[in-house]
Amino acid sequence: MAVGPYGALLESVRGVRWPARRPVQGGAPGAHLARTRGVASEFAEYRPYRQGDDPRRLDWKLLARSDRAFVRLAPDRAVLGTLIAVDASASMAFPAGDAHDAGAAVGRRTKWSAAREVAVACAAVAHAGGDPVGLSVAGRGGIVRLPPRTRSGVIAEIARTLDAVTPSGSQPLAGAFIGAPARVMVITDCLGGLDDLRRAARAHIAGGGEVHVVHVVSRAELEPPRTAMLATDPEDSAVVRPLTDASRDRYRAAFDSWRAEAARGWRDDGAAYQEIVDDQPVDVLVRRLVAPAGAMGARA
């Protein structure tokens, strides 16, 4: 698998599993517990025999002891199609490499690079579990889609697709939910079309799907530089505001409040919400993102 610069990252998440948050619909055999019962050797429960059942599934020993006909049932397992939806709007390119920009610093990653690595790593984890994995990238040219597949090489294709994208524009990400498989991971900074995105996510969850929201935040957004600057919104040129010592504290308070409100809203919608900072190690982030719901709740 040619994954270029992601080799070390993928090696670090090898063996990590991404279980479904709840039993999935039945389908092709996979690693996730399904809502259907099958005929596997693993015993789950008895059910009284009904006309039409396969007589071979009768528990003959039980029938002999109790003169009652029961059928042995086993838990079924199925695959869980996964879509990684990545926000490639202009705000994800922050901080840029320009020395005059707010977050410019040697060796500092952008929100886009963090989102890209998280996307590739999570796709690899899902793919390792036998799940079909697809990709949607919302950028200036619209939404680039890679349908969920299980074939080998899909991770490399996802990596190449992401590497070819330059974040720009302000394309809404809500469209990625159209025709999406049961599990959707949204990687975004939540700074554009948040209401539409949440509305689409709520509909997806109501349809039995599960949504993982990865909120990418830059360290430079959390702790802007101490020098005065005229902050401009890369997605809205009308927003030009002076960030000075006098306004810095109020900015941080407003940003913190907004993030807390966003997290509460996503969780109320039923989504698994995680905030990541662009300078955190991605392998650690991925283990936290794919952890079972109980484990995530314990960490939260």
């Binding site: 005059h100 830059s218 020098t227 005065a228 005229l230 401009t232 505001r241 002076p242 306004s247």
Partner: peptide, 22 residues
């Protein structure tokens, strides 16, 4: 007027006079 610099979260900066003291 300080130098302009992109900040995606600029919307959270309180609106004020662009001629900021520094």
């Amino acid at each position: 007027r300080p130098a302009a610099s992109p900040l995606p979260t600029a919307r959270f900066v309180p609106d004020g006079d662009a001629r900021a003291a520094s």
